[in-house]
Amino acid sequence: MSGGGRTAGLDGGDVGVLVSERRRLTDLAYRLLGSLAEAEDAVQETYARWYAMPPERRAAVRAPGAWLTTVAGRVCLDLLGSARVRRERYVGAWLPEPLPDRTEWGGGTVSDPADRVTLDESVNMAFLVVLEAMTPAERVAFVLHDVFGYPFAEVAAIVGRTPAACRQLASSARRRIGAAKAPAVPAVAGQAGVVREFKEAWEAKNIEALVGLLDPDAVMTADGGGLVGTVLRPVEGGGRIADYLLFIAGKAPGLRLLERSVNGRPGLVAQLGDVIVTVAAFDLGEEGGRVRRIWVVRNPEKLRPWGREGRAVGAG
C-alpha cells in the first residue's frame, strides 16, 4: 500500500520532488474518486492552489507534501459529493474507470496519468466497487487511514471532523467491506488461468464451459454511460450471463479478446480492428474457483487510458 509521504522543501524549481508528489497525489485521488480523469482534475486543482499562494507563503509551509495531501483530500471530498448527484443521473450502471498495465502495451510515459497510479490490491475493481457504496466521508477517512496510513489526527484536518469521528467513519467503512463478503484474492496466476479458460470458452462459443466457469449466482455489470450499447441492468445468474456472452459473440464476429491486466488483476479486453471497445474485470469466488462477478466497461470516455484504442466504435 502507498505510504503517506511528508516531503519538505518543495518549490517550483525542484522538478524531481514535484513529480514524486504528483504520483502520490494521483494515487490517492484515483482511489478516492474511482476516475482517472477526475483524479487528474483534482491534482491539477491542488497544484493550482499551491502556486496561487505568494512565494513567501509557500516558503513558510514546513511540510509541503502534507499541505498538498490535505488540499487534495478536501478537493476530492467535494468532488465525491457532487459526483454522487451526477451518478444518480448516469445512464445505466456507473463503474470505476479501469486502468491498464503499460508494460503489457509497450507504451506509456510519466506524463500519462495512468502511469502514476500504483497497481496494488487497493485499486482492484472489486475493492473500488465497494468503495463506491460508502459515503464521501467514509471513503476519504478509510482510504487515507487504512490504505495510505495517515493518522486520524491528520485525517480529521482533511475531513473536517474530530479524530474520534474519523475513526468511526473508517470503522463503518470496514463493516461495509465485510458485508460485501469479498473472498481472499486468489493468486494472480490462479486468476489468470480462470480468465484464460473463460476467454477460450467464449471464443469457442462453448456454453457448457462458460456455465461451468461461472458461479451459479454470478453477476455481470456493464457500464456504457449511454454512449454505446450495453445492458443497463446487471445480468444475474451464470446461465443468463453465458447466454448473453454468446449473443454478443454472434453480433460482433470480428471481436478479438486479449488477456490483459485490469487494475492490476488478470482481465480481458475486447478489440475490434485496432480499437479497444471493452475492458472486463473479474472477481473469483471461494478458493478462486469460479467467476462470481464481471465488471464490463464500454463507456469510451473511460477507455482513454488504454491509448488510441479507446476511441468508441459500436460493438454490441
Score class of each variant (00 low, 15 high):
Thr69Arg: 11
Lys199Tyr: 07
Ala315His: 05
Ala270Phe: 07
Phe148Gln: 00
Ala184Thr: 15
Pro151Lys: 06
Ala37Leu: 15
Tyr51Val: 12
Leu214Thr: 03
Pro305Val: 02
Gly238Gln: 01
Val275Asp: 09
Ala8Asn: 09
Cys76Asp: 01
Glu45Val: 10
Trp50Phe: 10
Leu213Phe: 07
Glu208Cys: 00
Asp215Lys: 05
Ala170Pro: 01
Arg176Glu: 02
Ala242Asp: 08
Thr103Asn: 13
Glu203Lys: 15
Arg265Met: 10
Arg22Lys: 14
Ala48Val: 09
Val129Ala: 08
Ala209His: 09
Val123Gln: 08
Ala133Pro: 04
Asp146His: 14
Gln271Ile: 10
Phe152Cys: 04
Leu99Glu: 05
Arg102Gln: 11
Ala189Thr: 15
Val211Trp: 00
Val61Gly: 04
Glu138Lys: 01
Ala83Asp: 08
Gly12Tyr: 13
Lys251Phe: 09
Ala187Ser: 14
Gly4His: 11
Val211Glu: 07
Ala249Cys: 08
Arg139Asn: 02
Gly9Cys: 12
Glu301Tyr: 11
Gly238Arg: 02
Val313Leu: 14
Pro136Trp: 00
Thr230Cys: 15
Arg102Cys: 11
Gly12Lys: 13
Pro216Ser: 03
Ala39Tyr: 01
Arg308Tyr: 04
Arg298Met: 04
Ala72Leu: 13
Leu28Asp: 02
Arg62Ile: 03
Gln168Glu: 15
Glu259Tyr: 07
Gly289Pro: 10
Asp146Arg: 15
Arg89Val: 01
Gly5Gln: 12
Lys199Arg: 15
Val297Gly: 05
Ser35Gln: 06
Asp27Ala: 06
Ser111Phe: 13
Glu286Gly: 06
Leu28Met: 14
Leu272Phe: 11
Met220Asn: 00
Ala281Pro: 02
Ala180Asn: 10
Gly73Ser: 04
Val147Arg: 01
Ala39Arg: 01
Ile241Thr: 02
Gly224Trp: 00
Gly5Glu: 11
Glu138Gly: 02
Leu255Lys: 11
Asn124Tyr: 14
Glu208Val: 11
Pro300Ile: 06
Pro98Glu: 09
Leu25Trp: 01
Ala93Lys: 10
Asp112Phe: 09
Phe282Asn: 03
